[in-house]
Design a protein around this nucleic acid. Sequence first.
DNA 1: GTAAGAATAT
DNA 2: AATATTCTTA
Length: 564
Amino acid sequence: MAENMVNLTKNSIPESTGVILLIDHDAVSVASLIPMLKQRSHKDVMRVNGASEAISVIEKQKDIGLVIANVELSDSNYFLTAMHQKEIPLIPLVNIKEASDLLTKRACFCLKKPISENDINNMLQHVVAPNKRQELEKIKIAEKQEESLKQIQTFRDHIRRQGTSQSSLLGRRPLNKTFTPYEMYLKGKSIANVERCTNVWTRDRHMKFLAAISILGEKKSRPKAILEIMNDSNLSQRQVASHLQKYKFQVERISNTLTRNEWKSTTDKTFEYPSDYVYPFKASNLTKNFIEYFSLRKKKASSSSTVQYSFKRAVAERKDKMPKFHQGETSNLHSHSLSGSSVSASNLDAFQKESAEICINPNPCQPSSYVLETNKNPLDMNQMGENHGLSQDMIFSGTESNHLGLDSGETSHIETPLETETNQMDWDWFFSDEAYAILEDMTVSETNRTQVGLVSGETSSADLENVAPPENNTNEIGLVPYQEGDDIPIEDLISFDTDPISEMYLDAWLENYDASQRDAPLPASCIGHDLAFTLTDSIPHDHSLAMHLESTSTTRNMHILSTR
DNA sequence: GTAAGAATAT
DNA sequence: AATATTCTTA
């Protein structure tokens, strides 16, 4: 008998669960089984030919942890009796046709020939880690669903990932859940603590970082220059470099997401961009940075007078590096009313061409100056009914004066020259408390559903709704609240910042799809394409999100780009 | 020698 | 995952 006992594993890890005893007279199946067992279980494997040998081995060897038995039918009764007193897991190894053998009744798991590696895995998980059984079942189910479920899962994961990464990239806090006031309190407390103690890149630091990048542009955004603008003595150049490295990775990831179908990479690393596609990164990035910065500044100023922001001066000293603000002739936002119509371009072709130009470099590192610099085409609001996504852009329109200023009144004004030379701009004023007060006021009124637009004319923001465009040349800074169903900047869509409900409903929708249409795979046309989800109604009261393939110029309510 | 970027370590 | 450190390169 000893000669039949084969210890096949030399480097196996001995465990308290003991060795595996394999009873099988079929040399062929043994040859394939033993290596699999050895590899997967990391246990010694003994092999005997028949039931009688096995029993004597079991009597002598104490540490048998598992018996895999292929015994003759005539022996099975005898063998079972002998095994009866032992508490050793028994796996019958049977041919498919004789699967109803007695042995199988005692067994918790049954191996059927021919045996695959998967069978071994499953068996080991059942026997060695039976608590993982449920998980295993799930996996098996998922495997059967193949592409459709995988697709959904990847997609869902992707959305989840983006929920944080996107918003943090843009310096926002993701609002994907609602919290009770107490939870909010705890959250705020912990965040505050974290930021004070451990976190180097606090929110306001990151905002300054983003602002610096907005100012410098992608190419000039080097750690040293960024730090100079940030003027933060608590930061080292290395730290900025590290953060920049991370930021660039994030940007690249987003870029890859957007690239998939509609962006064509060319050799010179520029991108062609379909003219009817809405450029996702708007000048509002810059605007947002400013506003964020301003509100932070306000908070700091009110809470502790010791913290001084030197950003203002640093920027002022770098007037020449500020982005150039070009402007359209008669652009205004008056017909971009609050009742849903969007800004249109009278010269559609020109605008579309420009859109393509704008999008040459789809990089959030440098959205602002591109948009602003190319935003010089004559626009008017005569054409209604067509969305061009322009509403999210910062629009500067013409005036005779050569300085940037705000009038504090019922509404605010910014007067800009037709071609703003940065060195002529009154940046000091722009960063003054007065300007801040105005901006801050605006942000308070509409929180995160607003964009800042600069409109020409002297209308008040209330007038934006219905008043005819004025004839004079002064410019006005006004708020353009998001309208339900309006085009929304891509960054908002991805992080669902603007509408926390959307994510919930999307999730519910996906769950629903998962459960009820498990057998219905995604349309083949969807797989491998970007998916666009459009709310059937402006507000998803039910779970009926319609799914559209590909983002088109007509479906722009909600673009959710999936990776795969 | 400095600065930046990539890669790696914590 | 975020940040720091080390290694390379210019």
